[in-house]
Computed example of a mutant assay.
Amino acid sequence: MKLLLSTVSVLFLLSAQAQPNLSFEITDYNFGELNEEGGSAEYTFKFVNSGDAPIKVTAVKASCGCTTPGWTKEEIMPGDSGYVKAKYNPRNRPGRFRKSLSVSTTHGPSNQTLYISGFVKPKPKTPEQEFPILAGDLRLKYRGLNMGKITTERPVEKSFDVFNYSDTIVSLNSLSISLPEHITVSLVQEFLNPREVGQMIVTYDPIKKGDYGYVSDMIELTDNSEESLSVVAVIEEYFPEMTAEELDNAAKLEIIDRSYDFGKVTAGEKLEIEFELKNVGNEKLYFRTIKSNCGCITYEVKNKGIKKGKSQMLKVFFDTSDMSGNQYKSITIYSNDPVAPTQIITIKGNVSRAEN
């Protein structure tokens, strides 16, 4: 009886010790550089069953639909080899990538995770794709020509790439340009040959524009333009370098309680809010302009200037018609305060629809 139990124990011990094991040659593979239009790339991860029991790969789950897995479907005996394949499709996936594949076996998850990585070179664009905006004989990358943040110190120049997609030579003289007084346009090249990329220089004079904050102008380069272009900028007042004493003597805008929460209101209500504007500087404060981010907001201010130590009220009118849900609006004040020439007032709350 003792001998029988001993034999059973040995057999049980041997059975418990008989375990399969997947040993991969490599678990992390880098494809290097792939072309987006070059089709799928494939790599085969090879492994050996280094255990002493048969094993079968039951599933391989990829972390992305861009990766198609494949694997040895047959049972792998101890000492035999198998594989897991990873096929990566780079189409419409430019840039760096790193994906994983989780391997499951007849003995449950194998705790084996495989990785593929690399870099996908973007598919070269045609000139028509790179320059989608038509402007007569020229094509541009963007409909909006953004001059960025500029000051009233001096006119600013910025260059934009253009493409002559026509079959004729384009020169500045051949362009029929409709421009406002504060904007001029020129070509770097005297002549732009057919199918040639060149540069267009936009010169913007903020003094002639006579405005502050976000501004936009529509321009047309030719009479047969299919697209009107917009030239946009954010204009701030220019202040030369000032000493500490000059800064102390300058105008200084202080907004008393610069935010207002109107809570919950019913759509259609017209709200009136007042904000106190105070000049705590030593020179007269001037408002260059006041702008809101919504046509639903209008304002009244009695004077466009505030003397030293004085204040006045800014009346704001907010029309909630055709609104619903959370609202966040802003009013921007541009002044001759050299330290904070741009200051923002915020209005927020929730607008609910009236019940029928």
Rank of each mutant, 00 (worst) to 15 (best):
S9R: 04
S23A: 15
F24Y: 11
F24V: 10
T27W: 01
G39F: 03
F47E: 02
V60H: 02
T68I: 15
I76Y: 03
Y83S: 15
S100E: 02
V103P: 07
S110F: 12
Q112E: 15
T113L: 08
G118S: 11
K121E: 08
K125E: 14
P132W: 04
L140M: 15
N146L: 12
F160Y: 12
V162E: 07
F163R: 02
I169Y: 06
S171P: 07
S174H: 04
L179D: 12
S186E: 06
P194D: 02
Q199A: 09
I201G: 04
V202Y: 01
D205K: 03
D205W: 01
P206F: 02
K208A: 09
K208W: 00
D223G: 14
E227N: 13
V234C: 10
E236F: 05
N249S: 10
E254T: 13
R258K: 14
R258T: 13
L271I: 13
L271V: 04
N282Y: 07
E283W: 01
T289W: 00
E300M: 05
K302F: 15
N303W: 02
G309M: 11
G309W: 02
K315I: 07
V316L: 10
Q327C: 10
S335V: 10
D337H: 01
I345R: 00
G349T: 03
E355R: 03
